[in-house]
Structures are given as C-alpha cells and as structure tokens.
Design a protein around this nucleic acid. Structure first.
Lengths: 204, 204
DNA sequence: CCCTCAGGTTAGCGCTCGTTAACCCATTTC
DNA sequence: GAAATGGGTTAACGAGCGCTAACCTGAGGG
C-alpha cells in the first residue's frame, strides 16, 4: 500500500495545481475539470478529496496565512532571543522570511491578496485575523527599529513593504537577475523604505 | 436633448461602477445584471452602450494604461525641461503622479494588475505594450538619478516600487492617516527604496 | 402629425459550471 | 473468499451566466 507520505501526495498535488491555476486565471476563471486534468484525474474525482471547490481555496488561504504568521513568530523569537545585532536583526529576519516565501511560492502569494473575497464568511474572518496578527507582528518590530514612527504610519508602511516584496510574481522570470541577487535587492529596498518612512515621520 | 457632456455621462457612469465591482469581486464574479443595477438600468440595457462585458474591461484597462503613460511622459517633459532640481525632480514628479492615481482611482489600480489576463489577445497585447513603455520610462529616469543601477535590477526595482505604491487599496480607509500624509509617506518610501537599491548595487 | 431613433424593457436561449448519482474496480481486512 | 473501502469513472441535473430577440416609449425633426 501507499506509505503515509505517498497517501498525502495526491491531496497536496491537487492543492499545488489548484493554487497555480487560481493564481493564473482567477478562482472563477478555472473549472474543476481543469484542476482535475492538471493532476491526471478528471472532474468530479476531486470530490473524493475535497467537499468542494471553495474548500480548496479556503485551505490554501488559511494555510498561507498561518504559515506566514507562525514562521514570522518563530523568527522573531529566535532572532530576538539572541539579541545579537539588536532589533535590526529581527527585522532583517522577518524580511528574509517573507522574501523566501514570495520567491518560492509565487502562486500562493498572488492568491493571498487577490482571492480573499471569494471565501465563505467564517473562513474569510479567520484568514483576515491571521493576516492582521502577521501585520501587527511586523508593526511591533518596525517600531522597535524606528521608534520615531507612530503606529498608523508604521502600519501603512508595513502594508506598502508587503506590496513591494510581493511584486515578484509580476516580473517575467527570464529577465530577473538570479534568485539571490533579487532577494538581496528586495531586502535592501525594504530596509531603505522603512528607514525613509521613519525619517519623513521624524521631520514632520 | 442631453448635452454633449450629459450624453457621455451614462457611459462613464457605467465604466466607473463596472470598475468598482470588478475590483471588488473580480471580473468573473460580477454579472451584467449587477453592473446594470448599479447604474439604475437593468441587465441587457448595457448592450446599448457596449458590445459586451469584455469590452468594458478592455476599455478600462486600455484607458488606465494609456493615462498612466501619457501622464508620465508629460511629467517627464515638463520636469525635465526646466532642469531645476536635476534628475531627482523628474523622478519626484513621476512618483507624485503615480501616487495621485493610486489614491484617487483605487479600483482602477486594482484592476490594472489583477484582471489583465481576462482580455482578448489583441487588447492584452496593447495593454502590455503600454505598461512596458511606462516601465521603461521609469527605468530611464531612475537610472538617470542612480547611474550605479544596471538595467535589469533597475527594472526589478521599478516593479517593486509599483507594488509599494499600489498597496493603498489593501488598506482599510479609516485607519489611514490623511491623504496628504499618506502621499508623503509613500513618496518618501519610494525614494528611499530606490536609493537603497542603488546603494546595494554599487556595493556588489 | 408621423417618422426616426436613442435608450430602455422583459423573455428566453444556449452554454458552462459546480455538484450529485450511480456504477466500477483494486486492494486490504476479516 | 467474501466484504468493505478508497479512489476513480461517466452521465446528468440545476443554476447562473452572457447575450439576443422582440417589443416599448418619449423626444426631436421634417
């Protein structure tokens, strides 16, 4: 029989392909037949693994939001505990983690801020809550590094930097510099953006 | 009879409501009946003004892209001609224009990078071409201000800053600082992001 | 006074989509 | 060796969609 890891493969395979298709053509733009075809089964076979199309999107979005949040918390705990490098190191770790995610799971990042409104109310509330906690985590760290920033502009700045970091899906692959170069570029830009936000706030 | 400007009002009204609805729930998520209802007529009455639902989206996207490009070109010509303030002033003008657009036409900005793939091939090609020219305009100006930046990272940086500036639709309205404060914040962040990108490039 | 016509209306067609029903077949379990 | 079960199939249904057809109306223009 299939091993434990093989048994979960089919579900994960479906989720992965669904994420790609949803990101490419939008939730309403892809049919269940296409998702099935992408994993080699056809149409209603998916209903052996998921109660419906909505459930796939919900599981994807909840998974992404949760992963981002727990990963961020882990990094804050780790980088904060050592206290080597000061609060700046914590922010660097957060940025690095988000960049890794944006570069490695591009379809998921795309879905994350594009298809939230297609969820059932309860799922949407959950995802929103996870997202909000993730933002608050960032806001605290950013204000630790830049105490001149009041909370509302800090929150706006965090959202803006998310926009910056999540811009990678818009770039056509071949024109990009290498992955590490891109990551370094985005990292520098994020830090610079925060620094300038703090400067502007201090001046005003 | 209706005057010339009144005659165009209904069309514009439809486009405006369609943009809002498309941005809120996605192109496939909105029916023609809803668009009609939003302007006080119902369903198929829209076909007196547009050949189809696709045509509304196409007109919106082409309009946005064209407006951004011509506005950008105008600003480059104006700010570049005076030569007062050097190349930095040109970049500031570009940033300012983009921020105005992002803050004043939030649904359009959302559509702009979200629903491009729902267009007919010819329309999509046109929009892509306009977008590319707009990016190239920015790349030239940015490299004028930061000559250390090679072209590929400059292009990536421009895309990233677009993501930053276009993040405003994600922010819930009431929590934002005032419009001018938000604009100033975004402006500072954009400049800082470019500067840091150039710094990082010079170091590498 | 009729004609035209812009700009609506409602009814309904045809298609696509998500979902269910009914059936099938390996493989495991007792 | 039968029975149960996981994972798949095809057929078909019902709803919703974009769009067309056919009809209506009120305001100019000759």
């Amino acid at each position: 029989m299939a091993t434990r890891t093989d048994a979960s493969t089919r579900r994960e395979q479906i989720l992965k392909e669904a994420a790609r298709l949803f990101a490419e053509r939008g939730f309403h733009g892809v049919g269940v037949d296409e998702i099935g075809a992408a994993v080699g089964i056809s149409g209603p076979g998916l209903y052996r693994h998921f109660p419906g199309k909505d459930a796939m999107l919900a599981e994807l979005l909840v998974g992404i939001s949760g992963q981002l949040l727990t990963g961020g918390r882990r990094r804050v705990a780790e980088a904060g505990a050592g206290a080597a490098g000061g609060p700046g190191a914590v922010l660097d770790s957060l940025i690095e983690g988000h960049i890794d995610f944006a570069l490695d799971d591009r379809p998921l990042i795309t879905l994350h801020d594009r298809e939230l409104d297609r969820l059932r109310d309860s799922d949407r509330k959950l995802v929103r809550q996870l997202q909000r906690q993730y933002v608050e985590l960032w806001v605290e760290v950013v204000r630790d590094v830049h105490p001149e920033l009041a909370e509302p502009p800090a929150r706006a700045a965090v959202h803006a930097v998310f926009g910056l970091l999540n811009s990678t899906p818009h770039l056509s692959r071949p024109k990009l510099p290498g992955r590490t170069a891109t990551a370094a570029l985005l990292h520098a830009m994020a830090r610079g953006a925060f620094a300038s936000a703090a400067e502007a706030a201090a001046k005003a």
